[in-house]
Amino acid sequence: MRQSSDLASRAKTPASILAVLALIGVCVLFFFLGKWQWDRTQDILDAERAATFAAVSVAEIQQPMNSKDFGRSVSAVGKFIDQDQVRIGSRFSPDSISGDWIVSAFELSSGQRVAVVRGWVPKGGSFSTPVSQVTVEGVLHPSESFYDFGGDQSGEVVVIDSQQLSELWNTELLDGFIVIQSQVPLDSGAPLFVPPTISTADVAFPLQNFFYAIQWWVFALFAVAIYIRWLVFGSKLRA
């Protein structure tokens, strides 16, 4: 009884009140750090789940694109817009030969447009574009805006970015772009399909993110434990 009233009086000292405020700050901070790692874990798992699902129509993808849709299999029915095509140089073929990637606007039957990577051709090489309706399937990618180092003085397009392409072609585009993996019907002059740059299907379980989430929360509890020990230790000293 004496000890508990002593503890209470010690908890009311200015130093102790400051310590409680710091403790609350630490707990809130650690909670959110843990939650951030937890959300990363969930995003990676969601993306993996989505990538293993059967292809969904690209029109069904939420706009603006969410990270859980990165790497997702999508399909589209419509046609390539012949005049809205661009070559992106210094890109690799499946056999690692440097050449051009052909990026085109693709118009869905609904009228919406999306950027697609049709595939690879040798540097400056020719290719054909079907005029009739085709069905394509591919992997959804976020815009490559992280590559943007502003080195396109010549007006040359170096990154695949839906925003930039939308300005270039003066047309509305859906977020991100599709790297085509199959096309029906396929004409003989079509560019060679390239493997997707990102793959979310076969990634390992995000162990690090998962455990970091738990560790942050354990550290928050530990901070509370230290505070209590500090109070008890101090009151024992006075006794």
Partner: peptide, 8 residues
């Protein structure tokens, strides 16, 4: 991950 728990 081990460092996290050891640090604890």
């Amino acid at each position: 991950i081990a460092h996290g728990w050891l640090y604890f």
